[in-house]
């Protein structure tokens, strides 16, 4: 597990009254929570409630129509590049190029975060070091997901945003990933995650998006 000891000081990330408007309707309103170093948030709710959308907003891929995200007192959308330096995001897809080898894939993403020093150790973490020189087109779906997760271990960031990270993984790897998450939190990292499979995330806050649905009447005023 990679951490840099220099930024061990307590950090604070908060979502303040965030609302999302998409496809001509309000997806959720007033989402407010905060998270400190070592903390974790579990985003919950049935399909279609906006969990992925919420994580995309937190990652800066989408902008909330109302409300702000704050890192300490800094609004994250003011200088997005600074925010992007603090986060790792795992979405539904595995950005793994079939024509590149496993190590080339991982190294590329690592180098965008400025360091390639931890690629090898990260590969070993997920037991795919022996696949390093295999072109990714020979990998199974689960192995591709492992490569994707390896990517976030190669460069230390404070906040992990994980959208159903364990899809397609076997039990042993899920257990391994739980250890990684625990280590990340121990070293002062934060995790915001949505999942449909049970994951061991001790003392995680629960953010139930069902609680932030707009009132039915609000729809009729839209247009």
């Amino acid at each position: 597990m990679v951490t840099s000891s220099s930024d061990r000081e307590n950090v604070y990330f908060a979502s303040d009254q965030v609302a999302c408007f998409r496809g001509g309707r309000t997806v959720f309103v007033g989402v407010t929570f905060s998270i400190n170093s070592g903390g974790a948030v579990l985003v919950k709710g049935p399909n279609g409630i906006g969990k992925s959308t919420m994580l995309r907003i937190l990652a800066g891929l989408m902008r909330p129509i109302y409300g702000t995200l704050k890192w300490h007192d800094h609004k994250t959308h003011v200088e997005p590049e600074i925010h992007f330096k603090r986060i790792h995001y795992v979405g539904h897809h595995d950005p793994v190029k079939p024509a590149l080898t496993v190590i080339e894939n991982v190294s590329f993403w690592a180098s965008l975060h400025g360091t390639r020093d931890h690629v090898q150790s990260a590969l070993e973490e997920f037991d795919i070091a022996h696949l390093a020189d295999v072109p990714a087109r020979f990998l199974s779906a689960g192995q591709k997901r492992k490569v994707n997760l390896t990517r976030i271990l190669t460069a230390p960031t404070r906040l992990w945003l994980l959208d159903e990270p364990t899809t397609g993984l076997d039990a042993a790897t899920v257990a391994k990933f739980e250890q990684c998450m625990a280590a990340h939190r121990n070293s002062g990292g934060m995790i915001i995650l949505s999942t449909h499979t049970p994951l061991d995330l001790p003392e995680a806050q629960v953010l139930n998006l069902s609680d932030y649905q707009p009132e039915a009447a609000a729809h009729d005023n839209l247009y």
Partner: peptide, 12 residues
């Protein structure tokens, strides 16, 4: 393959 969404949120 989702590479684009990561490229958009790189610190670059």
């Amino acid at each position: 393959d989702g590479s684009l969404e990561l490229l958009v949120i790189q610190p670059f």
